[in-house]
Amino acid sequence: MSRSFLAVSFAAVFALAGTLANAKDTFTIGLSNGWVGSEWRTQMIDEAEQAAKEWSKRGVTVKTIAQSANVDVPGQIAQIRNFINQGVDAIIVNPNSPTAFDPIFAQAKARGILVISTDAEVSSKDAIYVGIDQKAWAMQSAEWLAKTLKGKGNVVAINGVAGHPANQMRVAGYKEVFAKYPGIRVLNEVNANWDQAQGQQAMQNLLATYPQINGVWVQDGMAAGAWRALTDAKRSDVAATGEIRVDFLKTWNDRKFNSGASVNPPGCMASALNVAVLRLQGRQFKDGIFKGQYGNALYIPIPLIDSSNFQKTYEQVKDKPGYISVTTVVTPEQAEQMFFKK
């Protein structure tokens, strides 16, 4: 009796210890953002904090510590150092540099901390990336433009900051698409530094120089500027890519723009957070799931807004403040399905 009692109680203790070890249900996650120049970043942090709260519905407590400031690379490293010293379970970073965080991420990993970058890919082998594929983002709207022009016409491109990694990937993306259409001619490509006013200025100059423009490929907030220039010049015959803020969608709706916009969702950090919590719970990634130039990227879906779904999208967001961006979040359920083994 005593032996079997012992065996049973040992088994019970082990089982209990096992469940306790596996079912850790409180996690602390540091959110690091190195640039606060746009509402998009604020929305990104807000959505990540919201996603953390929603884990309580699944019986998991996720605490977040947000560090968001205009810092240089050493400043963001200091943020990450503090997260490490604080003993967080995971760090999610919107990084200011693709390469400069290799050493600090290595230190985080050595301390057993999960590191995820979002919005911009990083070279570190100690981190993973959860976010959109910037190149695919550009290819999708370039494809829309090429199809809208029925594969024929004169196109100009207005780009962001020369030398910025995301910009380079986007430029490579639309170039690849336009190269597939022999009838599409790229007349000129200019940089307007992701600035709305500079985008408008660039569009005015381009319209004056090339009256024969049929299509415009333009990124992010600069699209609002470019469209203003097109409207002022009464060029409703031109098709141009758009952007995803409610303000822009309102004008799109009022003036019936011929536009299409790839969505870079500010929910990317929330998506990364959902992936992080699943991983912290001990879930394993599917084999061969990582992609990208650094082999560490999990790409999330990129919605496209065009005439086919514009009304539906617009109805959903039209009552929100003008600076809010259309967003999507990869829910825990979707993340499980897309990235994790059963």
């Binding site: 400043g75 390469t99 400069a100 965080f101």
Partner: peptide, 14 residues
């Protein structure tokens, strides 16, 4: 260089 293991032309600005 020791801290970041990489180059950044804007690193010292601040």
């Amino acid at each position: 260089v020791g801290e970041t293991a990489s180059g950044d032309p804007l690193i010292g600005g601040a």
